[in-house]
Design a protein around this nucleic acid. Sequence first.
DNA 1: ATCAAAATCATGGAAAAAGGGGATAGCCGC
DNA 2: GCGGCTATCCCCTTTTTCCATGATTTTGAT
Lengths: 205, 205
Amino acid sequence: MRTGVFIVDDHFLVIEGIRSMLSDEAGIDLMGHAYNAEACLTFLQHHQPDVILMDINLGDMSGIDLCRQVTEKYPAVRIIGLSSYKQLSFITQMLSSGALGYVLKNATKQEILSAIDLVLQGRQYLSLEASEMMKNTQTDDVPVLTRRETEVLHLIANGLTNAEMAAQLFVSPTTIDTHRKHLLEKFNARNTAILIRRAIDLRFI
Amino acid sequence: MRTGVFIVDDHFLVIEGIRSMLSDEAGIDLMGHAYNAEACLTFLQHHQPDVILMDINLGDMSGIDLCRQVTEKYPAVRIIGLSSYKQLSFITQMLSSGALGYVLKNATKQEILSAIDLVLQGRQYLSLEASEMMKNTQTDDVPVLTRRETEVLHLIANGLTNAEMAAQLFVSPTTIDTHRKHLLEKFNARNTAILIRRAIDLRFI
DNA sequence: ATCAAAATCATGGAAAAAGGGGATAGCCGC
DNA sequence: GCGGCTATCCCCTTTTTCCATGATTTTGAT
């Protein structure tokens, strides 16, 4: 029984790289690939891969959202997150969205095969750097934002004032003020400058 | 005469992707690859590729620095920047460091072949998204800061208020205010949020 | 030595953000 | 059905930033 593998990545080169790496593997059946979340969901309506290698940065939807949707609809599918970033927030978000593995794009062929092997057994696989990250960083220094807070954060980063954001989101300026206060608290920032800096550091922006 | 191509990228998958894409091209001779800047420079001591496909985000050195060094020592080599990011600052810095081309990692095989073809003729190749960026953002040139302005910029990014900066630099708060005003002008920013963002984008921070 | 740029300081006012309180309604999980 | 989280809204005060306009001294390069 060969393992059905599906790839989701918006980078043609990465798809090509994985294909060439796995195409001559006896136990692997490359079922296909998708360049975006939508194509992935369409594929899953008629096919059932065992493992999905999924990029975190997709064009139309974040890999994190896609991951959540897929694991809800198709719990049997094992997902391995694929990313260039060893940012803790990405790793934790991907895992909490149902991914079983996380490998970086500088992974070797052997590492990817190991990851596929492990998640097939229902076990977790984290790349060395990823698990280092999990150990060395206490989870509470990457804030968890709500949908609205993320939205406001991006508007702040785009230079909008509270009044402008309020107009754009059709809410009261005092509401924006509250979201902003919460952002400062969550990022442990005393002003906008350091808020933006930390947010960029942690790849929220 | 086949075109000698060398690849520099710290992602194994991308190397593998390019190799598999170009390996069966008649006109292309894949001379090898490097995972970091140092290995690239070592290779160039004994070999002379026609084209280097170079990632911007390397482990040991930024692709921008590597690009500058290579074009200085080996002006005959044509460099094509390779990146996941279509950020203007990356594109302009890569081009001003001597790269002739810039393609994104979601490029198709045909696009990469075209890019190689064009830079071989000494002509520039920019991916569609990259040239869109260049068109749409003409005002966004890199500002020139004075010593003091750079200093103040970093203090702002560290979350200090004007009063605190004044105390630290032993000057009047109004002086800081002036520096800050100049920073906003030079970065074409209307507030601190976007100032910090642009400053990080342009690698001042 | 001269000219330009940089760094310094100021006044006064407008706008925005930060900090401290609260309050209400909806939703979800246990 | 209760507690917790989210999102919404309001008050008030203080701090900080932004804007306009002007000036003096220091420094650097030709």
